[in-house]
């Protein structure tokens, strides 16, 4: 068995996308008081699907890192044009962090089973 992208499968791509989500949501929380700032997030399902159906690994990496974020639809837009809802963002941040940790656990288990196979014990 070759240790390549296929070894870690979808988890690696999911992890990269969740990392991007964490960054976007951190930016939303940072700009909670900035007039005119519009909250953004990734469409995780669409981005992962695009990366999965990419013709080659390069195209997959490009789409993982380059897919455009989308603006959140504001429930209660404020007078200064800011569309950040801190409660929503904190919820989404916790969600992304949890999913990132889940991805790490899957990768961890995969690495451990590979190590077991390698050491033969």
């Amino acid at each position: 068995m070759a240790i390549d992208n296929a070894t870690f499968g979808i988890q690696e791509q999911a992890l990269q996308l969740q990392r991007r989500r964490l960054e976007l949501i951190a930016a939303n929380i940072a700009n909670a008081d900035t007039p005119g700032f519009q909250a953004r997030d990734l469409d995780f399902r669409k981005a992962l699907e695009t990366a999965q159906h990419a013709a080659n690994p390069d195209a997959a990496t490009r789409s993982l890192n380059g897919s455009a974020p989308q603006y959140r639809v504001a429930l209660q837009p404020s007078v200064d044009g800011n569309t950040v809802d801190v409660q929503v963002e904190q919820g989404q941040f916790a969600d992304a962090a949890l999913r990132y940790q889940a991805g790490l656990s899957f990768l961890d288990a995969r690495i451990k089973s590979l190590m077991t196979a390698l050491s033969g014990q």
Partner: peptide
């Protein structure tokens, strides 16, 4: 109050990011 709440949110973000980075570094 608004400034201190926003400051706290950013501290939380940083703590979570630190934990995730630490877990990533100890992968495997």
């Amino acid at each position: 109050i608004s400034a201190s709440r926003s400051y706290q949110s950013s501290v939380d973000v940083m703590n979570t990011a630190k934990d995730l980075a630490m877990r990533t570094l100890t992968l495997g």
